[in-house]
Amino acid sequence: MLEISNISKIFKNNEKDVAALQKTNLLINDHEIISLVGQSGCGKSTLLRIIGGLEKASTGFIKLNNKIIKKPSSNIGMVFQDPRLMPWLNVYDNIKLSILNENKKQQKVKISKTLQKVGLENCEKLWPRELSGGMAQRVAIARTLVREPKVLLLDEPFSALDSFTKTNLHQHVKELWASLKLTIIMVTHDINEATSMSDRILIIQKPEKKDDKNTQIININDPRSDLKNVKYNELIKNSIFKEPSIKTL
């Protein structure tokens, strides 16, 4: 279980403090797919980066299976919006970056297995410039999965892809989630993506009122959630309600 407890993040910007997250609490069960949605600047990517260990929280802590996480952990992998492949490394070496400390034989076995999982066998020697957008993103996913993480963080990884590639990759990620028993936390702006992929959709909302100082996390799927004050695009809200959101394999 992933426990996000009392997390705040204050960025110092020209001596002015900007709060990205304030006292945020969330529990995520093992083998769950969560989508985080919300307006730009609400702090969803910041939350993901804090879970990944790329940002330090100003207050609070994150626990994975009762162990506090303070820095990037091998149990948590992250795929970014852009593939971030090193242009000077071929596909094999890009994936190898995640498992540099293992011996060559292990690396070879793991990389070849992972490439098979993401449907890129025989692409080991290709350079990043020779890959399509979808292939590059699959290499990025392979680079993360090769470490066999328990939690996979996806920061809008499909946003730059065309709808056909996107649908294929959704299916692929769900298959990987099922076969590897992953816990997935995904940040997205695409509500269809969220509804088709997730067990739970959580809207992150910045505190609006002066007396309300906490970042709100509203579970769309929970009938007890008070959605009256959810400040989010009406269209998105409607599409969430029209479509049943829990879709699991």
Partner: peptide, 25 residues
């Protein structure tokens, strides 16, 4: 800087970051 983040998220140590990311870059 995003490449350095890849190094961080993958737990590369300083030597590995220099060898695999900074120098070739």
């Amino acid at each position: 800087k995003r490449m350095i983040e890849v190094a961080n998220i993958n737990n590369l140590n300083l030597f590995q970051t220099i060898r695999w990311i900074l120098l070739p870059g």
